[in-house]
C-alpha cells in the first residue's frame, strides 16, 4: 500500500467530533498500517467504533487509533475475533454458485424457457468472477 497522504489538519467539525487515524495489523507479525480515519469524540469511542468501521471482514487481528502525537492501541485484540458463524458476510459463504447455476439452468431448460438470442462469444473471458 502506498504511503497515505497526510490529511490537511482541519478544526473539529462541531457536529462530528474529532478526527482519528485508524491503524491495523493484518497478522500478529505485521507492523501497524494506516487503514483510514473516523470521527469520534474521544479515544475510547474511536477505539470502540473502529472495529466495525474497518475490521468487519477479517481485515486484521489488532487495531489502534491516533490523533496528533497520541497513539492508543485497542489493548484487547480478542474483541476483533468472531465466535459465531459470520460466513453470510464473507466470500466463503458463497462458494456453491456454480452448482446453483446448473440447477437454475436445468429448471429453465425443463420449462423450455432458455432465451435463444444472439450473445457474444468467449463468455468464459467475460464472465470472470468480479474478484
Amino acid at each position: 500500500m502506498t504511503a497515505a497522504t497526510p490529511a490537511p489538519e482541519r478544526p473539529a467539525d462541531p457536529a462530528e467530533g474529532l478526527r482519528w487515524e485508524v491503524f491495523g495489523r493484518r497478522t500478529a507479525s505485521d507492523d501497524w498500517a494506516e487503514v483510514g480515519y473516523l470521527h469520534a469524540p474521544d479515544a475510547e469511542m474511536a477505539l470502540l467504533l473502529a472495529r466495525d468501521t474497518f475490521f468487519r471482514h477479517e481485515e486484521g487481528v489488532d487495531l489502534a487509533v491516533s490523533r496528533g502525537p497520541d497513539f492508543f492501541p485497542l489493548g484487547q485484540p480478542e474483541l476483533l475475533e468472531h465466535a459465531t458463524d459470520k460466513s453470510y458476510r464473507l466470500q466463503r459463504g458463497y462458494t456453491g454458485l456454480g452448482a446453483k447455476r446448473r440447477l437454475a439452468a436445468a429448471r429453465a431448460a425443463a420449462l423450455g424457457a432458455v432465451v435463444q438470442r444472439r450473445r457474444p462469444p468467449d463468455l468464459r473471458v467475460l464472465n470472470e468472477d468480479h474478484r
Binding site: 470521527h39 467504533l49 472495529r51 468487519r56 459465531t84 459470520k86
Partner: peptide
C-alpha cells in the same frame, strides 16, 4: 455513521445467537 456500523454488528450478533 460509524455508530451505525457498530450497532448493526451488535444486531447481527443477536440474530446469530438466536440461530
Amino acid at each position: 455513521l460509524e455508530e451505525d456500523l457498530a450497532f448493526s454488528s451488535i444486531a447481527q450478533d443477536e440474530i446469530g445467537h438466536a440461530v
